[in-house]
């Protein structure tokens, strides 16, 4: 029971839904870097709490940004 309550407290709501955003731009590198780990990996929605739809958009945006070298595939400190 107690564990259950804790979990429900930890549950985060989707930030994009909270802001009523309908589009995630690949050019906004600072925003995207927030959803990427230190190594440059995309953080799963299980951690960030994003909803499925926004996570899909986000993933697409991150991949586009990587292609244009706006954000790294692998962070320089790891390489």
């Amino acid at each position: 029971m107690a564990r259950h309550e804790q979990q429900s407290k930890k549950r985060r709501s989707c930030r994009f839904c909270d802001n009523k955003e309908t589009y995630i731009d690949y050019k906004d590198e600072r925003r995207l870097s927030r959803f990427v780990s230190e190594q440059g990996k995309i953080i799963p929605k299980r951690i960030t709490g994003n909803c499925a739809g926004h996570q899909r958009q986000l993933v697409q945006a991150i991949k586009r940004a990587r292609h244009l070298a706006l954000i790294p595939f692998v962070s320089e400190s790891i390489r």
């Binding site: 930030r15 802001n19 870097s33």
Partner: peptide
């Protein structure tokens, strides 16, 4: 370019790397 910082948020570890 898109407006940034509309929502000042708690820095995540990824921010530090940035």
């Amino acid at each position: 370019r898109p407006v940034k910082g509309e929502k000042p948020q708690e820095p995540v570890s990824a921010d530090k790397a940035e």
